[in-house]
Design a protein around this nucleic acid. Structure first.
Lengths: 309, 309
DNA sequence: TTCGCCCTTTAGTTTTTCTTACGCGCGCGC
DNA sequence: GCGCGCGCGTAAGAAAAACTAAAGGGCGAA
């Protein structure tokens, strides 16, 4: 449909979008790898075209006018859609291939053990898992879907919840046979406390200190013990009998089921704000295989939450 | 969010979108007011960037590859959104002003008589009606909403149904007092038949010929009588006693209610495929006033369909 | 007041985009 | 079966757009 010979220069729109998003010409210039003067000129040109100012210049900062305000969200969406279109150009989708990005611990302890089941159900599918700690850049990679642990709000991305998360103390069953079996939280005083210090952790997540405090235990120092920076290492250390971990349930559940770990306290679990999400670009229509995978993920997650607790 | 220094030249994307939509470089060139050679170069550049051909060249015509196919709809949407964004830049919305475009007959016979009621309910609103026969170009005009009679499928636009339409014979009550009152369709032989030949008419709409045939009347020639090119003129002619019109109900309803027209036959009405729709650009979020107006339109239409038959 | 930050402006340069002109291949009509 | 015409491809140069560099100004903070 008519694309209008009256569209302004597209580069001017891009400059405006970046400047409006940052509310700063300088930062827009950085994003687009040009000088601030270039941005200023592009925006002047666009304002002439529009016949109205798009920014209000107030000495220290620039603010959007109503006209600019109205145009920004549409432009941002339009450029996101373009990026997605370009992605499709560069990597024509393979119908039978699915590339998943997720955090290493989750990949190792939750996803990988279950993937075989999915392969069994969908033998023609080829699922690749890329274990990345950082959030995926969907424009630079071939990632179809990402699995992320967080609050579920990701700008420019769509997210669907897989399952919630909780933390609970876990340890090797051997510890129960030892000289100081764990019968109540106070018994932790005899054991090493293992801390999960993963960078992506929920800031509101209870640590040993708050967990102990919530249970009225004052005789145990919640600060002592080693701090490991990956959830799976914490769980491994616990399984090896090196101490008691305050572990994420999803990461520990496999070892709990197999008996490598036990949860010594009945009321030990504590729900978190953060959860696991499927994440993909706002404008991407997931392929049939991707939709199958997402549905399978959700059913696996639901099954785990029921049987595991 | 990262706009990617890795987006290709935006003009190349625009050239591709136009060429892909037309499946012709030449027509894309016409649309963008450049030479075909320029399109060819832009697309070559884009294909180099993508690392894959976007078109399959087959001597006589160009066809989209899978990669091109995947990218086209997203790009088309993206450019439509941009056009909408630019529209917002140029004409910052006035909160209390609403510009409606609709066909002249509908404006005169259906909308205008009811508008006063809306003004009474929303005194602060300023509603303008632009009576246009042709479909509105939302990018070149200040039209907020269009009312259109048709099938409801308009490319790049969103449409919501207002009411359906039907045709039925109507005439002046004076004709019933005359020498040949209309008691059955066969009596039409004594009267002038008025034909609505509006350019926007439903092609499957019954004319006098098919209307008579459906009722088994063979004694009346459905072809005779004047043909008027605007629905309101047909209705006016009937009200003036100049004959019997096969009129659109929405156009005639006002005069039927006021007694200027009567519907002589009980089973005369015949439903049409075409209906009345509210139409606006796909990516436009209607203002509060526009939403109020649309809701009011629908309730008016529903009321008319009940009381009028 | 002075400094620093950020936007603006101007002039000149670089890069992109377009036109012109010609080449090529295929299908269609003669 | 043989041009002819239509539509795309390509090359070189011209035109237009975009960018840089450098200097300027306003405002707020120190």
């Amino acid at each position: 449909m008519a694309q209008e010979d009256r569209l302004p220069a597209l580069n001017a729109l891009r400059a405006f979008e970046a400047a409006a998003r940052h509310l700063s010409f300088t930062r827009a210039a950085e994003e687009l790898n040009v000088t601030p003067g270039a941005i200023s000129q592009q925006i002047r040109q666009l304002e002439e075209f529009a016949g109205a100012p798009l920014f209000r210049r107030t000495g220290r900062q620039v603010l959007l006018t109503d006209a600019g305000q109205a145009a920004l969200p549409l432009l941002t969406n339009a450029f996101e859609m373009m990026a997605e279109a370009v992605h499709h150009m560069r990597a024509p989708a393979r119908r039978d291939r699915l590339m998943i990005s997720c955090a290493p611990s989750f990949a190792a302890k939750w996803l990988a053990p279950r993937l075989e089941k999915f392969q069994g159900l969908n033998p023609e599918a080829e699922v690749w898992v890329s274990a990345d700690l950082a959030m995926t850049d969907f424009n630079h990679s071939d990632i179809d879907l990402a699995l992320r642990y967080g609050k579920g709000t990701y700008e420019g991305l769509r997210s669907e919840k897989i399952m919630s998360e909780s933390v609970l103390p876990v340890c090797s069953p051997d510890l129960m046979e030892g000289p100081h079996p764990l019968r109540s939280p106070a018994d932790l005083v005899h054991h090493v406390l293992l801390h999960d210090e993963s960078p992506e952790n929920d800031p509101s997540r209870p640590d040993w200190n708050s967990w102990l405090k919530a249970r009225g235990v004052t005789t145990v120092d919640g600060n002592r013990g080693p701090r490991l920076t990956q959830s799976s290492l914490v769980v491994e250390a616990a399984a090896a009998g090196r101490g008691v971990a305050l572990a994420k349930f999803a990461i520990a559940s496999g070892d709990l089921e197999r008996g490598r770990l036990i949860a010594p306290f009945a009321d030990g679990a504590s729900d978190l704000e953060f959860a696991y999400w499927i994440v993909y670009p706002k404008w991407r229509t997931p392929s049939k295989l991707a939709r199958t995978f997402m549905a399978w993920l959700k059913s696996e997650a639901a099954a785990g939450e029921v049987t595991g607790v």
